[in-house]
Design a protein around this nucleic acid. Structure first.
Lengths: 141, 141
DNA sequence: GTCGAACGTAACAGAAATGGTTGCTTCTGC
DNA sequence: GCAGAAGCAACCATTTCTGTTACGTTCGAC
């Protein structure tokens, strides 16, 4: 299966929000974000809705509404973003229960779960080393 | 999309091949492997076909045919397995090119590619720390 | 050389996920 | 009240994955 692009869209939106903020625009509409990401405004609202539930952005409704960062860009890591939009595991176990009459089938699931968790944790730790601010700085460099 | 289970199926098959080998059975048919994994024999042949192309197993055809390990279980890591069956990236970039008239849209792709690669490499390194033999030992423990 | 067991592979179906699109509802500042 | 924008539900097209059937191919046993 191909990986999804939600982390990319969310990171793009956050970097764009931070850049706009530095230019004095605290709030951007989903249309404005969608224009930069080059997708549909509903897609942006869906992604930013996930981020809002995680506290990474604020959404204001009504006239003059839009999205703004929920906390400083230096305090939003890519791990925060990943957790907000991609709760799925990186590797899946068997679809259907393996044969429990086989010694391997009986014991393999907790072992693989353990190893997959370990690998996923190193992946998360790597994402946690980068903030939205870092991403924007590297874009502007 | 949800992650696929090909690494799991492949690791299961390899552990089962190694256990059978220890019991004096060097060769197993796809039907026998499928019975332990609890899936269809074609699925097993597809997965083991990937492993064969990577040299991790050998497939014999003709009468009395089947699959056997291509090299010692102590020399097959989960990274080898992952590379053989899951070449897709863990995180995807934008589906359609971002707006190049926006500073963020222009610069974000190489930055994210870099960060994603870094995180993926730590994930790979974690998988490389475990061999099929380790997996089987933990199952039998 | 024939036979048959098992791999190799193509074709297809059902399910799920993803991105995209439209349309309607809800909220809220003016 | 009005208008602008988020929220949300309902689709659609595409892709991917697993599973299944079917058939061709290989090769050892006899």
């Amino acid at each position: 299966m191909a990986a999804n692009s939600r982390v990319t869209i969310a990171a793009h939106a956050l970097a764009w929000l931070e850049l706009a903020r530095r230019h004095g625009r605290e709030v951007l509409t989903s249309e404005e974000v969608a224009a930069s990401v080059n997708t549909n405004a509903v897609i942006v609202r869906r992604s930013l809705g996930d981020l809002q539930r995680a506290g990474l952005v604020r959404a204001r409704r009504g006239n003059g509404a839009g999205f703004s960062l929920g906390r400083p860009a230096t305090e939003i890591t890519l791990l925060d973003v990943w957790l907000a939009v991609s709760p799925e595991p990186l590797l899946a176990l068997h679809h259907s229960e393996p044969n429990l009459e086989c010694q391997v089938g009986r014991g393999i699931r907790p072992v693989l779960t353990d190893l997959y968790d370990e690998a996923t944790n190193t992946f998360r730790a790597a994402l946690a080393r980068w903030t939205v601010n870092d991403v924007l700085e590297r874009i502007l460099a």
